[in-house]
Amino acid sequence: MHHTSREGRLAAALVEAADTLTETFDTGDYLRRLSDHCVELLSARAAGIMLIDGGRAVSLAGSGCREEVALELLEAQRGGGPCLESYGSGRPVPPVSISVAHAAARWPEFTERALHHGIVATFAVPVRRGDVLLGALNVFVPTPPNGASESGRSELVVAQALADAVALGLENHRAYAQSRCLAGQLQEALSSRVRIEQAKGMLAERWQVGTDEAFIALRGHARRRRIPLDHVARAVVEGGVIDVVPRPSP
């Protein structure tokens, strides 16, 4: 569906941000797409998202438009910048003039690189889910800051809405991945138990002994060979190699 109004495009971006419950989810691609939406909605030069853990950047993603510039500007914030400042305070960093910040020696490495790329102003908002801070969204604009105006405040609101949606999407995918992993572990445990029971039954029938005696022999063989019990049971059940387990002595 083609959305022409800003509201429509924002709604589409928020829906896309929520679509993370898939097996093919890729964090880098996801963050790039949301950075692209940010550039389009805010008429920005570039945008990027920095995920932070323990005060250290663990993932960087820039908008496809001028991606190299966005990534370079995010990298330049290792020693300080709007992303780390927003993450540290949990609040937005309102539009800042790059030249003014550079003259005041605020974020010197970052502002130097921003001036080199013709970035006039920047602002950042935290990527957060409730009280949990995941990082920050940084927007680089080619016009002087006007954060006190209605349009300037509107840009911060839009950017924060996108950042909140990103945090929700990432947290939902994390929970989804954990539940899928747990389900897989439970299924494997169940399948392992079924194979062991089948192997016990096959050995008991072959040797004409009780299932408890067959299990003791199965377990003893696994321990002597230092092989997981399930691997031995699989060899018996799927390979039909009953003689892989020596028959217990009378």
Rank of each mutant, 00 (worst) to 15 (best):
L190E: 15
L168F: 13
L168P: 00
L162W: 07
A167H: 06
Q160R: 08
T143M: 08
G184M: 09
P145M: 04
A175V: 04
Q160D: 15
S191M: 04
R174C: 03
P142W: 05
S179G: 03
E150D: 13
P144R: 03
L190K: 07
V141G: 02
T143D: 12
A165P: 09
A165I: 11
F140E: 13
Q178E: 14
E171G: 08
E171V: 15
Q187G: 12
E171Q: 11
E150C: 04
A148W: 08
R174W: 08
A159W: 01
S149I: 00
E171C: 10
A159Q: 01
R174L: 08
T143G: 06
E155F: 02
A165R: 03
C181S: 10
S191K: 12
V141T: 13
G147L: 00
N146L: 01
S191Y: 07
A165M: 08
R180G: 09
V139Y: 07
G152F: 04
A148H: 10
V194R: 15
P145A: 08
G184L: 10
Q187T: 15
A167V: 01
C181T: 13
A165C: 10
A183M: 11
A163K: 06
Q187F: 12
S151K: 07
V158T: 14
S192I: 00
L156P: 00
Y176D: 03
A183Y: 08
D164K: 02
R193P: 02
C181F: 09
A165Q: 03
L182G: 07
